[in-house]
Amino acid sequence: MTSTTQQPTSHAAHPSSWWEHPSDLVMRRPFNEFTFTHMNWLMPTERVARGPASRPLPVAPEPLDLTYRFDDRDLSLADLHRRTHTTAFVVLHRGALVHESYPGLFAGPRRRMQLFSLSKSVTSVLIGIALADGAIGSIHDQVTDYRPDLRRSAYAGTTLADLLDMSSGVGELETWETPDSAIRQFERAVLSGGDVAAIIRSTPRTATAGESFNYSTFDAQVLGWVLEAATGQSLAAYASTRLWSKIGAERDAYYGLSRSHPRTAIGAGAFNATARDLARIGRLMADDGGGIVPADWVRRSRGSGLPHLAVGALGPSGYDHYGYANQWWTLGESCFHAFTGLGVHGQYLFVDPAADVVIVKCSAWAAEDDEDRDRETVTALRRIADHFA
Rank of each mutant, 00 (worst) to 15 (best):
141 D>C: 02
142 Q>T: 08
143 V>L: 08
144 T>C: 12
144 T>K: 03
144 T>L: 05
146 Y>E: 08
146 Y>G: 09
147 R>V: 09
148 P>K: 12
149 D>E: 15
150 L>K: 03
150 L>Q: 04
151 R>Q: 15
152 R>L: 14
152 R>W: 15
153 S>K: 00
154 A>G: 03
154 A>W: 01
156 A>R: 15
156 A>L: 14
157 G>Y: 06
157 G>C: 05
158 T>E: 10
158 T>R: 13
159 T>L: 05
160 L>A: 05
164 L>H: 00
165 D>T: 02
166 M>H: 11
166 M>N: 10
167 S>M: 02
168 S>W: 01
169 G>V: 02
169 G>H: 06
170 V>S: 04
170 V>K: 03
171 G>M: 01
172 E>W: 11
172 E>H: 13
173 L>R: 07
174 E>K: 09
176 W>H: 15
177 E>G: 07
178 T>W: 13
178 T>P: 00
180 D>P: 05
180 D>G: 08
180 D>I: 11
181 S>C: 06
182 A>E: 14
183 I>G: 04
183 I>C: 08
185 Q>R: 14
187 E>A: 15
188 R>W: 10
188 R>H: 13
189 A>P: 09
190 V>E: 00
191 L>D: 03
191 L>H: 12
191 L>C: 14
193 G>C: 07
193 G>E: 03
194 G>P: 04
194 G>N: 09
195 D>N: 07
195 D>Y: 07
195 D>T: 09
196 V>L: 10
196 V>H: 01
196 V>N: 08
197 A>Y: 06
198 A>Q: 13
199 I>Q: 02
200 I>L: 08
200 I>Q: 02
200 I>S: 03
202 S>G: 14
203 T>Q: 05
204 P>K: 11
